[in-house]
């Protein structure tokens, strides 16, 4: 090893365990024959010893251990509080979710067979005894505010129903004459926009749809299956 390499190893040489016995022996052998490096090493060691002596002279506060334990105690309390808060937050969220799920689950409408039978009976009775009055009574009992049109032959009435159109309960009357059938929906104008002036009509592959003014507040949507002729469903002798 040359002088430069030997000097670069000085920090390792000065500390026990940082250098192999072989390298240490090599440095010692070099120092024995190199007065320049010997002097350099001596100055380094003296300087290092002087700095080390001063750098380690730091007075440690006597109450530092107590301050450390106080800090740890404060932090532990804070960590415990945070843990409790976290658990409480998770528990609250779980309770809220369960309550919400339970509310949704239990708010489903109850299907009661007794009510269902009564409802079917009522509809059967009213349609069997077909008359405008029976239709008015049926929709009144069903809780639907509607208008029952006059100009239909109620002896042809085969079915009364309350159907949801875009979420709104709507009265529906079905008339049947031979192979021809007319489904009449009574839409409240305050809930549905209808074309002004001449009402629209459309023909599908199986039916024909026709809008008809019924009253100031309601409009009729008549769906014809078979012949799209309103006259067929009017009372005998009436003029369309």
């Amino acid at each position: 090893m040359n002088c430069s390499t030997i000097r670069s190893l000085a920090p390792f040489f000065s500390r026990h365990g940082e250098l192999s016995d072989e390298d240490r022996a090599t440095i010692e052998a070099h120092l024995a024959v190199c007065p320049s490096c010997q002097g350099w090493f001596q100055r380094e060691q003296e300087f290092d010893a002087a700095v080390a002596r001063v750098i380690q002279q730091v007075e440690v506060p006597s109450d530092l251990p107590n301050a450390i334990w106080r800090k740890i105690a404060t932090q532990s309390r804070r960590a415990a509080r945070m843990k409790v808060l976290r658990v409480a937050a998770v528990a609250s969220a779980v309770v809220l979710l369960v309550a919400l799920g339970w509310k949704i689950w239990t708010s489903r409408p109850v299907v009661d067979p007794v009510q269902w039978a009564a409802w079917e009976d009522q509809r059967y009775v009213f349609t069997y005894n077909g008359s405008r009055e029976s239709a008015v009574e049926f929709f009144a009992r069903s809780g639907v505010k509607t208008f029952v049109p006059y100009d239909f032959d109620y002896t042809l009435l085969t079915r009364l129903d309350v159907v949801a159109v875009e979420g709104t309960p709507v009265a529906c009357l079905v008339f049947q004459k031979g192979p021809n059938r007319a489904k009449v929906y009574v839409l409240p104008k305050r809930r549905f926009r209808v074309p002004r002036g001449e009402l629209a009509a459309a023909t599908g592959s199986h039916c024909t749809v026709e809008f008809a003014e019924s009253s100031r507040e309601f409009v009729l949507v008549i769906v014809y299956f078979g012949e799209p002729n309103r006259q067929l469903f009017m009372p005998p002798g009436s003029i369309g």
Partner: peptide, 27 residues
């Protein structure tokens, strides 16, 4: 704790900060 305090003191050069650093280290 003592040697950590000395190290902290030499790092920051302030007794107060060194004490805080030592406490924070152990915390």
């Amino acid at each position: 704790y003592a040697q950590l305090y000395r190290y902290a003191y030499r790092l920051c050069g302030s007794a107060e900060t060194a004490a805080d650093l030592t406490q924070e280290t152990f915390a």
